[in-house]
């Protein structure tokens, strides 16, 4: 397999994406807003006191890190994979002497570079205005890194196998909308896990969506006990493995099913 070609492709894509910064900055702004809305809502609910143990300052810390984590794990590529299949451009990927996964990965990494150029300064500025409070320790930081990386792997491959269903159904991308809705509800966006009603909490812990966005944040901000962290990693790894297996299955069947039209 040609890895060098893949790396060149990655570099190329991110440099070309930087040319269109304005567009991507707007997208990043749009993803940031809903999280800010719920930061303000819960801050208003906490008032000068606290709500379920969370004060305005810790809520601000949670949501600001969530904005960055969500931006990092959001797999923008999955929205375009379906189009590539529908338009038949995937034919070109298939004949190149490297894994077609590199195309998705190159867009992913390009996206991370461009979106972070917007999100990090803006989140920093917001931190100056709303004064978050963190109590970070080295061990939490050390656990955060694997948690966020696996969260990205899980979110990327979960969206990717859904997007690859475009081999059979033209509008498979509506499943991605569904995924985003579930992440909003169960992934710590609408509310930190502790603030969800008791009937929603078990679902949030079992379903994969929390492990795509909120879990790394909870690890970093110290909201979890030791065994909760341990179980979190186990469930996260389990879902990631499932997502990768599903991706390989859907991909190999899909490519066999694929037939391009036109000329």
């Amino acid at each position: 397999m040609n890895h060098q070609g893949g790396w060149e492709l990655i570099k190329n894509t991110w440099q070309s994406w930087l040319q269109h910064r304005g567009f991507f900055f707007l997208l990043a702004f749009g993803w940031m807003l809903p999280l800010l809305v719920y930061l303000f809502i819960w801050s208003a609910a906490a008032g000068d006191g606290s709500i379920a143990g969370l004060t305005q300052e810790t809520l601000a810390g949670y949501y600001l890190i969530l904005i960055l984590t969500n931006q990092f794990t959001y797999a923008t590529t999955n929205w375009t994979v379906g189009d590539t299949i529908r338009m038949g451009q995937i034919s070109r990927w298939l004949i190149q002497p490297m894994s077609p996964l590199f195309h998705a990965l190159s867009a992913e990494i390009a996206g991370k570079v461009v979106f972070m150029l917007f999100s990090i300064p803006v989140t920093g500025l917001l931190a100056l205005i709303i004064q978050p409070q963190f109590n970070l320790t080295w061990s939490q930081g050390g656990l955060f890194l694997p948690a966020i990386l696996v969260a990205w792997v899980l979110r990327f491959f979960w969206g990717y196998w859904l997007a690859l269903l475009a081999f059979w159904a033209t509008r498979a991308d509506s499943l991605l909308t569904l995924q985003d809705t579930f992440i909003f509800l169960f992934g710590g966006h609408l509310a930190p896990l502790a603030l969800l009603p008791s009937w929603m909490q078990p679902w949030a812990r079992i379903l994969p969506f929390r492990y795509m966005s909120a879990f790394p944040v909870e690890v970093l901000t110290g909201h979890l006990r030791h065994n909760e962290i341990l179980w979190g990693f186990v469930i996260q790894a389990g879902w990631s493995l499932t997502a990768i297996i599903l991706y390989r299955l859907v991909w190999s069947r899909g490519v066999r099913h694929y037939e391009s039209v036109g000329g």
């Binding site: 809502i41 609910a45 709500i51 379920a52 809705t181 909003f184 509800l185 609408l190 509310a191 603030l195 969800l196 009603p197 929603m200």
Partner: peptide, 13 residues
């Protein structure tokens, strides 16, 4: 999502 958001918020306050 709209209605559920309100349910979650007013479950707390």
């Amino acid at each position: 999502t709209g209605v559920l958001s309100l349910v979650v918020i007013f479950n707390q306050v």
